[in-house]
């Protein structure tokens, strides 16, 4: 992981390209006057409401998510975890009739202000419940994001692909299969590939919506290890149905119920001394 250097020209690409792994941010000076704002920092939400048509899916939610931590969203099915998660990269924009109010900040960016949504999504990556590698080669999957942002040179792309796969701890597994179709991989490999794909554009935040619910225990373990590794550089926000998983890897936990944020705090606190009775009932498995 010693080569995050990219002689990238196009303004935006370079500023983010430099931030990766343990490498030194070579070329960071290119992030000049053009973009003053930065997605680096905590995530702050104040008074968020979200409607799907007439149905209110999120009710007055305020939360501070610290950077470079793992934050878990838990709660019974349909309580709005995924909906809330998708607010952070504005995937809800794609849903018809979805209205969002309230303040959302990532770092010092007002993400519902006048910003470039694609730029936001480059900084806030997402991993879905179902692994969704594109029907193309492993290499092209990972290069998809960088290419989107104008990186065309083969050498630069080669570096990014290797760096991302190493970050996702799959370089050794996949280095000989880069040109093979990504759909031929196992489910667990596909999901880790999707993580690597998200990392290829060096996001500041990584959103994960039940990333392991479709996977076997061994793959799940690998992804959990990966998250613990990643949080040194990236803010991870993860939705999970798996209480043990939340307890094992997250620093903070937020419990949602029917669109309300019931309780939020340090994971140890939530699991050992929940303040709210509903939280206690949920984590002890009495409903959900």
């Amino acid at each position: 992981m010693l080569f995050a250097k990219r002689k990238k020209t196009s303004e935006g690409a370079a500023s983010q390209a430099a931030r990766t792994g343990t490498s030194a941010p070579v070329g960071a000076e290119t992030a000049q006057a053009e973009e003053q704002t930065s997605y680096e920092g905590d995530i702050c939400v104040k008074g968020a409401d979200l409607y799907y048509g007439d149905f209110q899916a999120l009710k007055n939610i305020s939360i501070d998510i610290p950077e470079k931590n793992i934050t878990a969203f838990i709660g019974p099915s349909g309580c709005g975890k995924s909906t809330f998660l998708k607010c952070f990269n504005r995937m809800n924009d794609l849903v018809q009739g979805c209205k969002i109010t309230g303040e959302f900040r990532i770092g010092d960016v007002d993400i519902y202000g006048n910003i470039d949504v694609n730029e936001l999504r480059r900084n806030v990556g997402m991993v879905f419940q179902k692994p969704n590698p594109f029907p193309m080669s492993v290499y092209d999957n990972i290069a998809y994001g960088p290419r989107t942002f104008g990186i065309k040179k083969r050498a630069a792309l080669d570096e990014i692909v290797e760096r991302s796969l190493r970050q996702a701890a799959m370089w050794e597994e996949l280095k000989d299969r880069l040109t093979k179709s990504a759909l031929g991989l196992s489910g667990g490999q596909q999901q880790r590939l999707c993580i690597a794909r998200a990392l290829a554009v060096s996001p500041k935040v990584l959103l994960m919506d039940e990333p392991t619910s479709a996977l076997d225990p061994i793959s799940t373990g690998k992804i959990e290890d990966l998250c613990l590794e990643l949080k040194q550089d990236v803010t991870v926000v993860m939705v999970t149905h798996n209480m043990q998983q939340a307890a094992r890897i997250s620093d903070k936990t937020a419990f949602f119920l029917l669109g309300d944020l019931i309780e939020y705090g340090d994971t140890d606190e939530i699991f050992d001394r929940p303040k709210n009775k509903k939280t206690e009932e949920y984590i002890t498995g009495r409903f959900g």
């Binding site: 995937m91 694609n118 990556g125 879905f128 969704n132 998809y144 994001g145 989107t148 942002f149 999707c194």
Partner: peptide, 9 residues
Amino acid sequence: EGSFALGAG
């Protein structure tokens, strides 16, 4: 969704 989430238009 995967493509949009990577910032593609």
